[in-house]
Design a binder for these strands. Structure first.
Lengths: 223, 223
DNA sequence: CTTGTGGTGCTTACAACGTAAACATGGCGA
DNA sequence: TCGCCATGTTTACGTTGTAAGCACCACAAG
């Protein structure tokens, strides 16, 4: 049989390149094929259809940067590291969140592995597995939701500019007060993210430490 | 001039119906027009293009259910009410989150009004406006992110079924332990949501009550 | 009453998309 | 050497968003 010149991994990688350059709309079968000196239809030999390609792209990005090994001993440090990593990933690939919203939530192998890593952060904590997932979900959701709000979308117009534009002249004084606040200070997205991250981790920590019925067992002190 | 038989509001409302029935992909200019006994091109007299239509749909849904008036006196009650309302909205219109992810974050008039309502919940709290927005963002993001994970996407396959399917046989024991947990117990999305909501509100409350430099001023006790 | 005039909806047309179907090709097993 | 079949290509079809031009009609001006 004819030696294949295309591979599934190569296709996915190229599609990711295309998406990074031109957004998710640019991920066209023909265009991805073109970057590989192939026709658009060639992709169908390695990928069921466009949606499957998107799912593959999502899972590829999900495992792109590994989480730190060994995992920090205290769950709070581990989860913070994970949150930062995800946060960075979302900005490295602005199309990522759009894709996950469009497709159903993708539980590919790499994504599952990441979840396992995160769950292991709670190994020292005496909570039911389902509650561990619930706690994780709070953090995942926060990171995802905030990124969704602030990732630059399509056109080059800065998100900050868009907000100040829209908030002024609305006659809503509390919103306009924020614009004043934003104008004078710097616009530091990472700082905003870290602020919220602290609140979320605080909420989780409060739960783990104050439930009288299930005391924390042998959680290592943070150094 | 010829009396108009279409109106922008009518178009937006019809488009929302279409999306509720057949998902966001069904929101085609031609199909929305057809429901109004009009051609697809007729819509362009009232809406710039498809994206503008989506943005209008988003803002319409954002203001569909008003938040409770009068607003609960304690910020925590107010924010909880808001979060539940948003949570319900996301499930009433599964396409909503997909649309907000696709378009840039939409700050339409109704959405801004909702934000103003939420900000007012912090009127009794002595925090800088920018920090109020940060605190709100934590909650918004959590609700949005969790809904994004659990809203049924497209096909009728239940999300729960999809998860159990994917989690089994991965060889990752922490994930499989969760499936066992899910299997025996009930699968109560609202309970999951409320659990996380408590954690987020706890995190916010901890911040507001323990900062030594900015004490809470005259926040009313909850009855 | 007649006559623009401009807002409204319709028709046609086009490029781009996902993808089904048939075809061409070339390396490997027999 | 022959045939097979996986791989990539070509062609084609239906659907999409939307640009361009046309047809209509109600009102203001004459």
């Amino acid at each position: 049989m004819a030696r294949p010149t295309l591979s599934r991994e190569q296709i996915v990688a190229t599609a990711i390149e295309v998406a990074d350059d031109g957004g998710l709309d640019a991920v066209t079968m023909r265009l991805v094929g073109q970057r590989l000196n192939a026709s658009g239809m060639a992709l169908y030999r390695h990928v069921a259809n466009r949606e499957a390609l998107l799912e593959a792209m999502i899972d590829a990005v999900a495992g792109e940067f590994g989480y730190p090994e060994p995992r920090p001993a205290h769950w709070r440090d581990a989860l913070a590291a994970m949150a930062w990593q995800d946060w960075r990933s979302y900005f490295a690939h602005p199309w990522f969140l759009v894709a996950t919203a469009t497709c159903r939530p993708v539980l590919g192998p790499r994504m599952l592995q990441s979840m396992e890593w995160a769950l292991a952060a709670f190994d020292d904590v005496d909570v039911k597995p389902h509650e561990k997932l619930r706690l994780l979900s709070v953090l995942y959701s926060y990171v995802q939701g905030l990124a969704l709000t602030w990732t630059p979308q399509g056109d080059g117009e800065s998100v900050r500019q868009y907000w100040t534009e829209r908030l002024l002249g609305t006659g809503l004084n509390r919103l306009e007060a924020i614009v004043g606040d934003l104008g004078e200070g710097e616009f530091d997205l990472d700082a905003d993210f870290e602020f919220g991250l602290r609140r979320v981790l605080d909420g989780i920590e409060l739960y783990l430490t104050t439930r009288p019925e299930r005391p924390v067992k042998a959680a290592p002190d943070r150094q």
